[in-house]
């Protein structure tokens, strides 16, 4: 569609840059799921640190969650695939290390989606507030680490279900 719009502008004999707005691009990025936790988007995860037009090139700043997270390469590929699918032709992804990612950047929408999915969202207290399955607050830490770098393993003492807790860093 975007290409068609550009073509229409050119056909009227005038080349007008029809750049999608920054708001529109954030919306598109909010449609890109995290490859390991697909119920939240990359925007929910808080790793998109900036979107801007530099001339006719779209620059997207992305920060890694954990320095060794193997999903980082897939995330960059997914961003690129999604934006190219929306007609963005000139795109530059920049790795931004500073300030380092913190779980404080998770959106409220993302936190709610995590809990709904069965992953307890991070809390400043350093542990889950309640069991994402039954809501009980009688919980036990099984391990500080879990199935991905961003999670820890916990168990509910009431419903006895094990569950993931999104580490707070």
């Amino acid at each position: 569609m975007f290409n068609a719009m550009v073509a229409a502008c050119i056909s009227r004999g005038k080349l007008v840059a029809m750049q999608p707005s920054i708001d529109q691009i954030w919306k598109w990025l909010d449609g890109v799921p995290d490859p390991e936790i697909p119920v939240i988007s990359l925007v929910d995860l808080g790793i998109i640190r900036g979107v801007s037009w530099q001339g006719d090139t779209l620059e997207v700043a992305v920060t890694p969650t954990y320095s060794g997270c193997p999903a980082t390469a897939i995330i960059n590929l997914d961003i690129e695939t999604a934006l190219r699918g929306h007609g963005i032709e000139r795109l530059e992804l920049k790795r931004q290390l500073s300030p380092p990612w913190t779980t404080n950047w998770l959106t409220d929408k993302g936190r709610a989606a995590l809990e709904e999915y069965g992953i307890a969202p991070p809390t400043a207290a350093g542990g889950p507030k309640r069991c994402p399955q039954c809501g009980s607050e009688d919980l036990k830490k099984v391990s500080q680490f879990g199935s991905t770098p961003c999670k820890a393993a916990w168990r509910c003492n009431d419903c006895l279900e094990p569950f993931d807790y999104f580490k707070c860093i």
Partner: peptide, 20 residues
């Protein structure tokens, strides 16, 4: 198992820092 996962995660963080 939990310790196995913890060790592998620790190793992963360290290799990530190595890349940087």
């Amino acid at each position: 198992l939990e310790e196995d996962i913890a060790l592998a995660n620790t190793a992963l963080d360290l290799i990530g820092q190595t890349q940087l």
